[in-house]
Design a binder for these strands. Structure first.
Length: 115
DNA sequence: GGTCTGACCGGCG
DNA sequence: ACGCCGGCCAGAC
């Protein structure tokens, strides 16, 4: 019988989900921030890929994860390109033209907040 | 089983 | 200051 590495999170996909779930409402984070927190560092791309798998899963607010520029890069991956913006605004985050306002202030870096 | 892409980031010219 | 390219990991064809 094979176990799925129940002891801790082996797959960083699982780690990403955990971190994203911990993102407080009204706050956003970047792929690179999560990647760095997980220790992947350069593999920020995988974080976005993990989000792809996070689709359909509940508790994984992928809409709270944006790129380094605070741009809603993955908005097109949602059901509708406006879902991400709508959700963020609903949480109190101002979004203008796919860009998070006060992104730097809204940025929730796990490597810092969870330090 | 090999190859390519992919919701990024950072360095270099 | 801007543009391009390389890098990392994993999933899909």
């Amino acid at each position: 019988m094979k176990e799925k590495e129940a002891s801790g999170s082996r797959s960083f996909f699982n780690d990403v989900y955990a971190v994203v779930k911990l993102i407080p409402r009204g706050r956003v984070t970047s792929y690179g921030a999560i990647a760095r927190y997980l220790g992947t560092g350069m593999s920020a791309r995988m974080v976005g890929w993990a989000m792809n798998a996070a689709h359909g899963k509940k508790g994984v607010p992928a809409h709270r994860v944006v790129n380094r520029n605070g741009l809603l890069t993955g908005k097109y991956h949602f059901d509708t390109p406006t879902t991400m913006k709508t959700r963020l605004e609903k949480e109190g985050i101002k979004v203008k033209q796919d860009q998070v306002q006060d992104f730097k202030s809204r940025l929730w870096d796990p490597a810092v907040e969870l330090l």
